[in-house]
Simulated assay, not measured.
Amino acid sequence: MPHGSNIKEYSRDHRAWIQDGKKFRNIRSSKAFIWPKDGRNGSKWGRMKDILQDKGPDIHIAISADKMDYMKNRQSRSRWSDWTCLDDRDKDLSMSSKKYAPWTCNGALGGRAPGLSYDFRTRKYGKYNKYMWTDVKWQPEPNGKHLYPEAFRSFTGDWYQDTHYIPLARRYEHW
């Protein structure tokens, strides 16, 4: 693979876009709507069902210096689900929604009320409780026939694995 340049990342400290140590100013940034997947209902009809049932993750805004870099600047899974207290190892380059989309921080304007985290068990945002799933790994699509995930993480950050699920790669080792 040929070597390519890193993407431009916005530095709040320098108030400029930085790529490979070089500052870029006066760049017209592009914004994109990102609808993250939680691993469940990944098909088009499944996502439409989520809208009608008011389930699934919120749509977010990503900002990037180049139009095609928006996927690299999207929010991390721990950020959009608001579980950064358990998993903050990914560098988060996403923008602040308070500046570019202030209605998202106000429940009266159609946004989500502050202090709610995504519950992967109910697939809705809610207040912290000890029965919440803070992350989940579903079986590969189509996963509509599976009622329970392959693994989930509890409120305390501990992972629990379904012992009846055998990954596809390991299934063929037993033959």
Rank of each mutant, 00 (worst) to 15 (best):
R123N: 13
Y125R: 09
Y131L: 10
P114W: 02
A65C: 11
P57Y: 11
R153T: 08
L147N: 13
R79F: 03
K124N: 08
K55R: 15
Y125T: 03
P114H: 08
G144E: 15
L109M: 06
G56S: 09
P102D: 03
M95N: 05
S117Q: 12
T104R: 14
M95Y: 05
S154L: 12
R79K: 13
I51N: 13
N143T: 12
S117E: 09
A151L: 02
W138P: 02
F120N: 02
D54F: 11
L147S: 14
S94M: 07
Y70L: 08
K98Y: 02
G110I: 05
W80H: 02
M68V: 09
D82G: 00
M132P: 06
S94T: 05
Y125N: 01
A151D: 02
R74E: 13
T134P: 01
T104P: 00
W133M: 12
V136P: 00
C105L: 15
Y128P: 13
P102W: 00
K137I: 08
S76Y: 01
R77Y: 01
Q139K: 12
K67W: 10
L116S: 04
N106W: 09
T84A: 09
C85F: 03
S154F: 04
L93K: 04
R112E: 02
I51R: 15
K124S: 06
G126L: 01
A108M: 09
T134R: 06
D119K: 09
L86A: 03
H146C: 13
D69M: 02
K99W: 03
S81F: 03
H60Q: 14
T134C: 10
L116N: 00
M95C: 13
P57M: 14
V136Y: 00
S154Q: 10
L52Q: 12
